[in-house]
Design a protein around this nucleic acid. Structure first.
Lengths: 211, 211
DNA sequence: TTTTTCTTGTGATTTAGGTCACATGCAGGG
DNA sequence: CCCTGCATGTGACCTAAATCACAAGAAAAA
């Protein structure tokens, strides 16, 4: 395979494939065809083969893909063969829910530090044992704890300020739950992903209204 | 403007524009150019004009767009000129956080009923006064309360079952926080939107690893 | 009134991504 | 050992979306 720019949609789908494969591992299915996997993920079979082709050859012609092997390979591609350290800012309802959420550790994501500006919360410990630090100390504590990815759960108007601090650490990835478009200076190698349920709801509202 | 299929990416961006315009209304800015709005949203100016062109003409040449008017028009296009009733299933940490989240009412989304299967939770009332019903009664309570959109916050293995019940109500839109690809029968006019932070995190992990 | 400036609206172009279709090659049966 | 069946891998094709570039039109200045 030649070196090509990999569509970001491909990465997103790899994540979906990985999830479906975990399921199949559970069910002790040894082999899966692109056809079957495509059904499970709701995509086109050729799409799967194309996506995988960016990274090498993983299947056996006439047979399909060995589930365990393929899962291992995809996880390796995505960088999920290591544990990722997360820093979270904004310990409101949503922030606390995320820290407690079981899916993160299951996928190898670990919260290593937490921040908030509310004096009532600072110093308090969460159920997981995580202490809440003031946002002032973000750079310092992130470095100490080896945080690699930042998670922003603050209100919209605080998010940019927090993002700036995260860039200063520097964290190289930000998962943003605040409903704002974060402005990241060019060239700073920081990838931002937005989790935007308001936007998703608006999509639903539109389709229910118009289509 | 002729009748064209509208890209779903356009709808997503309209939601972004709407958000940025709310901001501008706050700041009492009367007029905005596509150039300026594009900066705020991190998109191409022509993109904005193209997106709006699907729905009509909203600007004044040489001037720009009147902020309040445009906001009103976009909200109307998205169907946000009414209140939407939400039903939520799965009152764990995440579910409770969402019900308490201030952004939903701000945008005209209102939780009208809540469900869980845990006997410890059923009958209990949330801070908002919302009572938790057993999932068995989903169809009944959804109809009574006029729920229009379903929100799924259950673990992955319960999500499909819940979705099926929602289709039976019938709800016409589902916002799915569970990490599964919900299977919706063809022809049932139900739009599913996935809020998938695991996938977003995986994207970050990939970029930090490879890119 | 005429000219200049500015920004929209939109056809043309480019780019990117998704789908198709078939040759390739492995496995199992006769 | 050969033949048949099956699923991958991939080049060719097709579709859709983003960007460009410019004509049209409004307001302000001269």
């Amino acid at each position: 395979m030649k070196f090509l720019k990999i569509p970001s949609a491909t990465i997103t789908r790899l994540s979906l494939y990985s999830r479906a494969l975990e399921e199949l591992v559970q069910e002790q299915v040894p082999v899966v065809s692109s056809k079957r996997l495509a059904e499970l993920c709701g995509v086109n079979p050729a799409q799967i083969r194309k996506d995988l082709a960016y990274f090498g050859q993983f299947g056996v012609r006439g047979v399909g893909y060995y589930v365990k092997e393929l899962l291992f390979d995809i996880k390796k591609i995505l960088g999920l063969n290591k544990e990722w350290n997360l820093a979270i800012v904004g310990m409101g309802n949503l922030g606390c829910a995320l820290v407690a959420h079981e899916n993160f550790p299951k996928q190898g994501y670990k919260f290593v530090c937490a921040f908030d500006n509310d004096p009532m919360k600072i110093g308090h410990r969460l159920a997981t044992g995580l202490e809440i630090h003031p946002v002032d100390r973000l750079e310092e504590v992130c470095r100490q704890t080896g945080a690699e990815i930042g998670v922003i759960c603050t209100p919209a108007d605080a998010a940019q300020e927090v993002a700036n601090r995260m860039l200063a650490v520097p964290l190289k990835g930000i998962l943003n739950f605040a409903p704002v478009q974060l402005q990241c200076p060019e060239g700073v190698g920081c990838k931002v992903e937005n989790v935007d349920f308001t936007v998703k709801l608006d999509n639903l509202a539109y389709h229910l209204t118009a289509g």
